[in-house]
Design a binder for these strands. Structure first.
Length: 842
RNA sequence: GCCCCCGUGGCGGAAUGGUAGACGCGGCAGACUCAAAAUCUGUUGCCUUCACGGGCGUGCUGGUUCAAGUCCGGCCGGGGGCACCA
């Protein structure tokens, strides 16, 4: 019997699927739909093993749903704008476009080796003008709907990438791509009004039942809703200042008012120059980097002004400018209550201001309660607070709000941490912002008939700043409104805009408008989205916002783009170092006799922990290499086996060998001769038939729940059953083997086709219906029940399914082991859980 | 600092409160072979026993329950998210 030739088989079946258009998206609307999507890749030029894991999972699901009779949409495209193309352009003197499309071609070839059931006719790249044309249209729609605005603001400036970043793209005070500490700059920039949907984005999280709890929680924290009160303090200079507080109950514990260094009032006071202006500059210099914040002392500048306590005209509070007050949150001004806020407490210790506890924990004495160095933030009763004394925190909050609202100038509000999405990027390889700046008319949108606004091809990349801005002619245009001379906006959109709606475009990639409404109504939302956890906030929040904005612009009717979300784990590998401490690639290492050695010199190698595959640690394996050795099915099987899909998986050579052996084992079973012909009726009740139908039920359930590792285990169980019942009736053997092939179809599609053919069937498994389990063969008719005495296992009994309790009890008590332990005593109590357990309490 | 998740054999991991360790890797023993590879069979949590058997076992510790890996409290360890957000 010939060994299974994966390479030959895989090429053959990939060609056959392609020739027969097996994976084209159905156009009928009669069947239920299932939209399966994996996060589309950035075209770096090579697929890495993380892609393989991601796309294998998606492909299994797509094939499984197709077999179950769904109309499946399973497309692929390219998130193609971005900085690496510009860097390549600068270093290799190629155009970003040529570089990107060459990478796409190379990656597509590699992806095709995996045998993914994708509809390639829907492929597009976000850098195609045919795509971003519609994105520009959406931008203009959003502008019309009031969801786009331009504003001068403090922005996060990445000094390495020479561009601004959104808040979500600043990780620990550093640029998400460059890793450079982010600087603050004041620039006029484009924003998308994501905060218009703060509440909706927050509340709808509860409806996303098929999202990981973790991701929902991360988004919830990111949006950061808090309820509080806005109210004003009158100032000694005749002005007033509005503050925001979530703890208005602590108002009688106030000891200062603090303004942000960027507060308009601070600006005004600093105009006179001098110490305050210097203080202000100092605060700005420190920036937003994590280390800076960690080390930065709470610093204040006493303005000399005082603020009048809203409940006591004779009570004056000092007004400081403080470095820890953020202009972007609340009103940019606060009142400080040191006893019940750690930050305020640190501040007053420095400036010797009073600390008056006003919330006293249950059981403590109000006269002697002292917070010491740790602010008390727990519940309790109000004290030292005049008319609030004795109230709970909640009652006091309410009372203060009521009274201040009555006095005027106060308002209960909800405050969010979420900021608007800054989408301007000073980069040329992106979607140009379709706006024109006219001296006479101001900002004017480009006419829709003039879309797409395309960037020129002849960009110079050796310039400082944005090559688009530096281009000699491109930005000069005429005003769409008055026809006079005007300039184009030279910023491009954040590439996260590109990925915020691509899944909607996939529904009809030929649509003349941004989307085909009929197609999106049918296909959206995406039923199962699969990708990395690293997009938990950025991409997934932006896409949720985009759906809402597109709904407002009447392109879609839904608000949530992804009904199901799955975040898969990373692929890891052991790390290796030689005696000099330099990293070694896995292929240079030979593992034997419990040790690891260099392949050529037999020098011992230090084996380090398994870590995410990365170039710097050299612990990478190239997908194309392992596909070349084992074939795609082996790699796919590895990616699905053993480790639950949401966890990190470790790639090992032994594991790959084992998967390869299993491929051969299935091939040996399926290519056996001596089976009755296709269509031989099978009936009766044989253990092999039971194993077969139990496998159908279990694999079906596990695949539907994306428990691929368990589905794999169930397949092994069936294979073991086939192997150990060689004397089963031939028809039952055929049934078992055919079932096996159908069950592995989504996971090892090429092997399945070859086996299907060997079993005498016509192609394709890919279009064959999913097997259905016979309930009569899945159900057990005899049950093994555990018998415990005082919770300790003493034996088992075999009884008829659903036998009555008395019968089970009698059988259990009859066990010799039970009798020995009971030693003649009568049990106090016997608990019988039908079909499960008998517990005898002695 | 705040919030969240996870701790099960040598390893990856199973287990609606009901026989802990399914399935796989690795190990051990055997068959086939001149030999090896490949394949097949058996075995494999720990301790104890010639054996039958017995005891102990899901990070530690208390609790709820006839019954706890699973539920609740406290601790220890690992990972992640947010972080001057008033």
């Amino acid at each position: 019997m010939a060994r299974y030739n994966a390479k030959e088989s895989e090429q053959r079946w990939q060609a056959a699927w392609n020739d027969d258009h097996v994976f084209l998206t159905p156009t009928d609307r009669a069947k239920p739909k299932c939209y399966v999507l994996e996060m589309f890749p950035y075209p770096s030029g090579r697929i890495h093993i993380g892609h393989v894991r991601n796309y294998t999972m998606g492909d299994v699901l797509a094939r499984f749903k197709r077999a179950q009779g769904f109309n499946v949409l399973h497309p692929m495209g390219w998130d193609a704008f971005g900085l690496p193309a510009e860097n390549a352009a600068r270093e290799k003197h190629v155009s970003p476009r040529d570089w990107t499309y060459a990478n796409i071609a190379a990656m597509k070839d590699q992806l095709k080796l995996m045998g993914l059931s994708l509809d390639w006719t829907r492929e597009f790249a976000t850098c195609d003008p045919a795509y971003y044309k519609h994105q520009q249209k959406l931008f203009l729609d959003f502008w019309r709907e009031g969801l786009v605005y331009r504003s001068e603001a403090d922005v996060n400036w990445d000094p390495v990438d020479q561009t601004v970043l959104a808040n979500e793209q600043v990780i620990d005070g550093r640029g998400w791509r460059s890793g450079a500490p982010v600087e603050r700059k004041k620039l006029s920039q484009w924003f998308l009004k994501i905060t218009a949907y703060s509440d909706s984005l927050l509340e709808a999280l509860d409806t996303l039942s098929r999202w990981p709890e973790k991701v929902r929680l991360m988004q919830k924290n990111w949006i950061g809703r808090s309820e509080g009160l806005r109210f004003t303090f009158k100032l000694s200079n005749g002005g007033e200042v509005e503050v925001f507080s979530t703890r208005p109950d602590t108002l009688f514990g106030a000891s200062f008012v603090a303004l942000s260094p960027d507060h308009p009032l601070t600006e005004e006071l600093a105009k006179q120059g001098g110490a305050l202006a210097r203080f202000q500059a100092e605060c700005r210099r420190i920036g937003t980097a994590e280390e800076a914040i960690e080390k930065a002392e709470k610093l204040g500048y006493d303005t000399g002004l005082t603020a009048t306590h809203p409940f006591d005209p004779n009570w004056k509070l000092p007004v400081y400018v403080a470095n820890f007050v953020l202009m972007a949150y609340g009103t940019g001004a606060i009142f400080g209550c040191p006893a019940h806020d750690q930050r305020d407490l640190d501040f007053v210790h420095k400036y010797n201001l009073p600390v008056v506890p006003v919330v006293i924990p249950e059981g403590a004495d109000p006269r002697s309660f002292d917070v010491g160095n740790e602010a008390y933030v727990g519940p309790g009763r109000l004290a030292n607070s005049r008319f609030l004394d004795g109230m709970t925190v909640e009652q006091a909050k309410d009372e203060v709000a009521k009274r201040l609202e009555a006095q005027g100038g106060a308002k209960r509000t909800v405050q969010y941490r979420l900021r608007d999405w800054l989408v301007s990027r000073q980069r040329p390889w992106g979607c140009p912002i379709p706006m024109v700046h006219c001296a006479k008319c101001g900002v004017v949108p480009v006419g829709e008939s003039d879309l797409p606004v395309k960037a020129p091809d002849d960009l110079a990349f050796n310039v400082k700043g944005n090559p688009l801005d530096a281009h000699p002619t491109w930005k000069h245009t005429t005003c769409p409104k008055c026809g006079g001379a005007a300039t184009r906006d030279t910023d491009t959109l954040d590439t996260f805009v590109d990925s915020s709606w691509y899944f909607a475009r996939f529904c009809d990639t030929n649509a003349a408008e941004p989307v085909n409404r009929e197609a999106v109504d049918y296909w959206l939302p995406v039923d199962q989205y699969i990708g990395g956890i690293e997009h938990a906030i950025l991409h997934l929040l932006y896409a949720r916002f985009f759906m809402r904005a597109m709904k407002k612009a009447e392109w879609v009717r839904i608000e949530e783009p992804f009904a199901g979300l799955f975040t898969q784990g990373m692929v890891c590998h052991e790390t290796y170092k030689d005696s000099k401490g330099d990293w070694l690639p896995p292929e240079a290492v030979n593992k034997r006799d419990g040790g690891a050695f260099l392949k050529d010199s037999h020098e011992p190698v230090t084996v380090g922990p398994s870590e995410k595959m990365s170039k710097s640690k050299k612990n990478v394996v190239a997908p194309e290499t392992i596909i070349d050795i084992f074939g795609a099915d082996t790699i796919r099987w590895f990616m699905l086996s053993d480790t639950p899909p949401e966890r990190d998986i470790e790639w090992t050579a032994e594991g790959a060998d084992a998967c390869w052996k299993f491929v051969q084992r299935i091939w040996r079973l399926a290519s056996e001769t001596g089976l009755p012909p296709v269509g031989t009726p099978v009936s009766g009740d044989h253990p092999l038939r039971r194993a077969t139908h139990r496998a159908i039920a279990a694999v079906t359930e596990d695949l539907a729940a994306l428990r691929f590792n368990r589905a794999v285990a169930q397949v092994y169980t069936l294979v073991n059953a086939v192997g150990s019942t060689q004397n089963a009736p031939p028809a039952a053997q055929r049934e078992a083997l055919e079932t096996l092939v159908l069950l592995i179809g989504p996971m090892m599609p090429h092997l399945a086709e070859s086996c299907w053919e060997a079993l005498g069937h016509k192609p394709f498994v890919a279009t064959a219906p999913w097997p259905v389990a016979d309930p009569a063969l899945v159900a057990e008719d005899t049950i093994t029940m555990a018998v415990q005495v005082n919770g300790k296992l003493r034996g088992t009994i075999t009884v008829a399914k659903d036998c009555d309790k008395a019968e089970a009890e009698k059988a259990a008590l009859a066990l010799e082991t039970v009798q020995r332990v009971l030693d003649g005593k009568t049990p106090k109590k016997v608990i019988v859980v039908p079909n499960r357990i008998v517990n005898i309490v002695a």
